[in-house]
Design a protein around this nucleic acid. Structure first.
Lengths: 189, 189, 189, 189
DNA sequence: CATGAATGAGGCTTCATTCAT
DNA sequence: CATGAATGAAGCCTCATTCAT
């Protein structure tokens, strides 16, 4: 039971602070203080604050997708898991006090030159999109064009649900998104 | 043809910078420089940076809602205007390079104590919601419960469309939201 | 008898420290501490450390050339003043403990991108060269080509005298330069 | 054909960086990175950055004097080699982009306590001076006093030539020094 | 003998705000 | 009502060195 490594301690503190306080609100000094790490030690593991953010988002992606897949595993693969994924959002966002999506939140107020961060965000949403497509493909009801359109629509619902629940500090937008999703999946066009 | 007032010049510069560069990326010094205003003059009109942001968001709300109503005015009030509102989003977001929603963008990375800003954001989304409700009510097809649920769903679509178009730097999410919206409005539940 | 302004205090401290301790050895913190000025106050008057150095060198140029002209004024304009200028070097360098030339010293170990500093140094040496040319022209003994060559040679002697006196911590190199200069001026070629 | 030793690799990198980028501009990290050496390995061979500089200057002295002697070897020992030595300066400084004298450059901006470095610099210039004296002695035209004075003057010319060519980024100061040197050697005083 | 991790001190610069005129 | 000067706190990052393995 030894002490976590410097890298781990930095990641823990940075993840918590970046997510709950915000990227710009979180200073390097705060991170190293909470991680109980010397500043230069931190910079031996991460070249810059931006790099910490990238690592944070990558870790967050793994964690978030993992939890999502676990959560929906009780349902049959396909539409059912997609519908169930909104229940995941409800659980998650209630737990974090509707703090919203770590990926959305970080790109909205970013120094103009920090492209690496934006890239991970796009990657995360693309991966989520891939999973949705998988679920739709398993269903077998749709051709490729239909799948793509549905996929886009569902992703919009997810993004909107997370964002609006953050603004309103409530979970009703997530349920609304779920209802909308059910409607979209029921009515072939 | 006199020079715009200090307040107006500050608002112009701050609005532009807050929206396109981001609230945290924009410093007071940059605002006064671009507004060509002395620092203390600015602080005579606005108690703090937060206050400037509040004024910016209020102005932006008026402007945005005004443009929305103008844009959809060519359509019959009701579902048609709602559908048309997504075309507004397409026009607007293309014009601003998919910079997203000024209201969404500002709340995601904010000092913990700046509640006044959050309040205006909530107000803005509530007003948008009111307009949607108006349009649905005019239709006459829905009871109150149905109206509220549809309203929530449509708002989620709008939020998601704006956010995802910002992430993907493309307008397809807006069209996806529009398609989804049409589906929701067509299929009574 | 009011307190000197912030700018003056910064200049005084920076000049003293840059010259006697060295540009790289002198930190912003040391400057503001000795100038008794808040850091941000300093940055209101100087955009960067480089800019302070530029101002320091410009001021130093005026001071140094002024003192030189004053010192040699007792001699007749022409060769005599040139010879006398080496006595000026002796006086000056003894006074500053053979700390060398502020202009030479700053360019030898400079971040690659600080061109503004280099420019002032070149300007300073060019102005000194102009003065030498003036003195040679007054003499009337030389044609343009001869003047230019002598000028270059004398400037080399001055630079070498200052540098070698710094290395050896002694004034004999200055006297050597003076002797050499006399020889050059005596023997037309 | 084995890999150069740690010490050699450090020396190679440090020499290059100290000379071309500057002592203060070069960090330990950059040295070990370019030398492909672990930090602690380096500190096993050199007690401190200052020690690396001392070794660098010692090596540089051997190299520089060696090349000088080789270069002038085509001439007869005496005045001729002295004159020829300025051609060496021209060749060398053109090759290194007028980066100046590694010894001059390092002492102008040094932490106050690093005396070991200063000592090597003085040693280097003294050795150069010894060589000039040798050349003058071989000539047989001068008494001891005359030799010493000429020696000082020639050294001043060399120092000035190197420094001014660095400032002006041109080789004309070296030719000027050569002309002056010829004049000094021709005219007994 | 070699190493990567860890460190305290300090580097330069910018922040939003207030003060004195 | 307008202003430029002044400020303390904090921003991100790099320094030369030492430690534990």
């Amino acid at each position: 039971m030894s002490k976590p490594s410097v890298k781990e301690r930095v990641m823990e503190a940075a993840s918590r602070l970046f997510y709950f306080a915000g990227y710009n609100q979180t200073g390097i000094n705060q991170i190293i203080e909470e991680a109980k790490v010397a500043k230069a030690s931190m910079y031996q593991h991460f070249r810059s604050k931006e790099d910490i953010a990238v690592a944070y988002l990558q870790e967050r992606h793994e964690m978030w997708m993992g939890k999502l897949l676990d959560f929906v595993a009780s349902e049959k693969k396909g539409k059912a898991q997609i519908i169930k994924s909104f229940d995941y959002l409800v659980d998650w966002l209630n737990e974090v006090g509707f703090r919203g999506c770590g990926f959305q939140n970080i790109i909205t107020d970013l120094p103009k030159d920090q492209h690496k961060i934006k890239d991970v965000v796009v990657y995360h949403k693309d991966e989520l999109s891939k999973w949705i497509d998988e679920m739709l493909e398993i269903e077998g009801d749709y051709n490729k064009k239909q799948r793509q359109q549905l996929n886009e629509e569902i992703l919009v619902l997810i993004e909107g649900a997370i964002m609006l629940s953050q603004i309103k500090n409530a979970d009703y937008p997530i349920y609304a998104a779920q209802r909308a999703c059910e409607c979209l999946l029921k009515n072939t066009r």
